[in-house]
Computed example of a mutant assay.
Amino acid sequence: MEERKKICGYYDYTVILTYIGIFIGFTGIVFIMEGKYREASICLMISGMCDMFDGTVASTKQRNRREKRFGIQIDSLSDLICFGVLPALFVYSISGKNYMAFFVSGFYVLSALIRLAYFNVMEEERQEIEGGKRTWYLGLPVTAAAIFIPACYVIQSELDCTAVMQIALIMMAVAFVLPFKIKKPYMAGKIGILFTGIIEFAILLLGLGLDV
């Protein structure tokens, strides 16, 4: 049955972090276009932080079936922008916009898109059968880019070798679609990821050895 709404979509607090993450991700893309790679890296990490906790926020409210399905879709669409398109453009731009960087970045975006679309299908089926929270991921989550890309940016700046980021992009792209299981991080895991992110964030803010 068609739901009568004054405006399409949902706008309660359960999706606010996802919407903020999308906006921050778009801001990062604009920074890349302006050649501000350090700022783009910071935007990528902030988007990752938003994604890390949006599911926790959403779980605090009892949602109907349509709201849950909307949450799955909007989260993956956000992930494609923030952790698919943004990192791909980052590497393409910082590598001098050459043909190799173009194909590597394109392969990365395609892999991220396939993974996210497949995840949506499998997650909707899982929720209909099992319900509850997911305890593992199949393949590397695309949100891993929020940690790996800034780290590779720091490394490539120190080594003055853009091939580092292209290699990292290829490895992540392959890992997105390989069917290996990764246990979903809970509080301890999230604290570890957050601590790593804080260290990277501090390095990026200080701009040590970075092209700014």
Rank of each mutant, 00 (worst) to 15 (best):
S41N: 14
I42D: 02
R66P: 00
D54G: 09
I182W: 04
L169E: 14
I7C: 08
L113P: 00
V104T: 11
D12I: 07
L206D: 12
R38K: 13
A145K: 03
I129Q: 12
T14H: 12
F103C: 11
S59P: 01
I149C: 09
L159G: 03
L205A: 09
G106R: 04
F119H: 10
L140K: 06
K190E: 12
K36I: 03
A202N: 10
G131C: 13
I72M: 03
S105A: 15
P141I: 12
Q156E: 14
V85F: 09
Y137H: 14
L77D: 01
Q62G: 04
A40P: 03
G96E: 03
L89R: 04
G9Y: 06
E125G: 01
V154M: 09
F180Q: 09
P179N: 09
G35H: 09
L77W: 03
L113S: 13
A151T: 11
A175R: 00
D160T: 06
F102W: 13
Y137P: 07
I16K: 00
G192I: 14
S95C: 14
G84I: 08
D79T: 06
V91T: 15
E128H: 05
Q62W: 01
V212C: 05
L17F: 15
G132R: 10
V164H: 03
L80Y: 10
D79Q: 03
Y153T: 05
I42S: 00
E158L: 15
G48T: 02
G189R: 05
I199K: 06
Y37W: 15
I147Q: 08
T56D: 12
A151D: 09
Y137R: 06
R38C: 06
G55M: 08
L140A: 13
K5P: 02
I81Y: 00
P141L: 12
R115I: 11
R115G: 05
I167L: 12
A146G: 08
R126C: 02
C43F: 13
I94L: 14
A40R: 02
M1A: 11
A168D: 01
I193G: 04
G192C: 13
R65V: 13
P185G: 02
N98G: 15
R4T: 13
L110G: 01
